[in-house]
Design a binder for these strands. Structure first.
Lengths: 343, 343
DNA sequence: ACCCGTGCTGTTAGCGGTAACATTAGCGCA
DNA sequence: TGCGCTAATGTTACCGCTAACAGCACGGGT
């Protein structure tokens, strides 16, 4: 109440103010502002001018309530602190851009309880659709999503049952594929390094596929190391040091993500270890960061941008009409980089 | 209309459904669901049970319209694709967590026009407060924020005039301080490497402070290199190579962010250049990533978590009462790392 | 002349909640 | 016994906007 603000806004403006200022009914103002229905050029100009000069900002809350339409799409992801979800988001925003829909992000920190809360909060705003990372949710979460009566797209993963639609890759198969490539390249004493976050289902599925492919070749994991929290690059370095000290005969290190893989790579190079001759390395994700490394880490692109795009398309499409769940599987490409022996 | 969903939800539920199911008035249901006012234990139980079994999710749109209260805080940032804003966000979420307020993120991609749109959209949901990165906005943006009648906090930067409140550091002084430290360490042929994004005002201010401090010591930038887009780590490497080839007598490289600084560091180490003996390096931001590098890059912590926290506190506080803009300056600490000669 | 379509504008009735006030029952106490 | 008080619940009037329909002037076809 102290600082002066231009043209004292004691009360926030409504359609009525614009209507009075321009001498037409509220309804006509509403029509002008939404570009809907027929309005003569003259009144349109007059209304726009009035709205602009007053600094009117429509109240979407009232609008949404009256029209039963909300241009929001809820996007629920576990974390923002690694590069993977922002990239999915970018794909979503791009695609939603020219549909009038707008993404609203919620973060769960890999906690199912938190996810439940975030979904509940999100749904209470009656969005036009929801994009949720992963297929694993609490019973209550699944129920809420199923009941919501809006298109739901679960992303990243397709190894499981979707509530409605799904777009993603098979992490299980991604793990297998990487294992097969490693075995084909002649590595035999293979170790795994990853997170121990119990709720990173996708990392778990990759490991499962990986181990099964090893088993098929008569191999088992030679060693493994898990971490949680902290700087991934540093953890990668530390875990690599630890595992190589403990099991010096290891000839391959499979990391659950590129960031720790990069840490491991830097460690190996600093130690003068022959990569990929003596030890091979591989990560997962295809993060941009890797381009700047002294040597290109083998990895597997998780199709993040594409996943975002497809998910957004589904929402935007159903928004227009079609009903019915669809599951879209994308196929990651193995990028051998310079850290797996050729052939 | 094809897939079966549990207990067919043709129409979405309202208070009335819960009220009928539990035999009390809508008002009482509303009270129970919001924990407000006196309700007997018996009816409370009954209502909760009914709500739960129906799977009722309240409609916040209607609630917000009726109560003229929205528990959202708009957060507008230029980008999600470098680690800095997610960290600010983390600070904001943490602090908002137990205030009943919820952040909603908008991304501008460093475009003032986009920012204007995002602010407009955001305000049209009548949030309880807004947190906006930077002090530079279009006239229209500033006007909208000023008129909104809600607490506004501009973050990251304090070199300029705030619409309402501000929390941040002086990038200008941060640049000066780094220059002084570099000069004090005995470096004289100093180059700058950074983005050429015309809208990264904070990087610009750092450079300005940096150059002024050089000037005071009778120095000027020996060379400079700019980039845009692409993998920052890779760009850092490439720019470093380019600048060192062009100006081999450079003895210090000041990077506008840690990511390109890290790329430069990796390049120098790979080339066997004596760091910090022959060439010193410094970045800006204090990103976690750096912990995993072979050598710790000199940098300056931008207080990102703290900025987020303080901004959120201001919003939450004003939400409760106080009015009046406040400007909080935080002071980044110089972390010399291992890439500046000692004294 | 009549009717009907078309272009523009206004009126009415909610959307699904909540603030504020009204109502009722039950109780202690003078 | 009757008053005032509190606890528990209900009633009414919106919140700011939009869907749906109504009104009206004008013009052209028949």
């Amino acid at each position: 109440m102290t600082r002066p603000t231009s043209s004292d806004p004691k009360r926030t403006l409504t359609l009525r103010d614009v209507s009075e200022a321009s001498g037409v009914s509220e309804m006509t103002v509403s029509r002008v502002l939404r570009n809907r229905g027929d309005v003569s050029v003259a009144t349109r100009e007059r209304v726009l001018e009035a709205a602009r000069s007053l600094g009117y900002v429509p109240n979407k809350i009232a609008g949404a309530l009256a029209s039963q339409r909300v241009n929001l799409v809820g996007v629920i992801i576990p974390s923002l602190s690694n590069m993977v979800f922002p990239e999915v988001l970018a794909g979503i925003s791009d695609t939603l851009e020219d549909t009038g829909l707008q993404p609203v992000v919620g973060v769960t920190n890999y906690s199912p309880e938190r996810e439940e809360t975030v979904i509940y909060e999100m749904l209470s705003w009656r969005p036009s659709g929801m994009i949720v990372a992963g297929l694993e949710h609490s019973e209550a979460s699944r129920a809420m999503l199923a009941q919501a009566g809006i298109p739901i797209v679960e992303i990243m993963d397709i190894d499981g049952e979707a509530v409605d639609s799904a777009v993603g890759i098979s992490h299980y198969r991604a793990g297998r594929q990487m294992a097969e490539a490693i075995i084909a390249a002649g590595y035999r004493r293979i170790a795994f390094l990853g997170t121990m976050m119990p709720h990173d289902h996708r990392a778990r599925k990759r490991l499962k596929g990986f181990e099964e492919a090893l088993a098929k070749a008569g191999l088992t994991l030679a060693d493994s190391e898990f971490y949680s929290g902290g700087s991934a690059l540093l953890k990668g370095r530390e875990m690599t040091e630890a595992i190589l000290k403990r099991s010096p005969d290891i000839d391959f290190l499979y990391y659950s993500n590129d960031m720790i893989g990069a840490g491991g790579l830097l460690y190996c190079l600093a130690q003068g270890i022959d990569v990929p001759g003596k030890i091979g390395l591989a990560g997962f994700n295809g993060v941009e960061l890797l381009d700047g490394l002294p040597r290109r880490l083998a990895t597997m692109d998780a199709c993040r941008l594409e996943i975002g795009r497809r998910a957004a398309q589904i929402i935007a499409g159903k928004h227009e009409g079609t009903i019915g769940g669809e599951v879209i599987e994308l196929f990651p490409t193995l990028e051998p980089g310079d850290t797996i022996r050729k052939g």
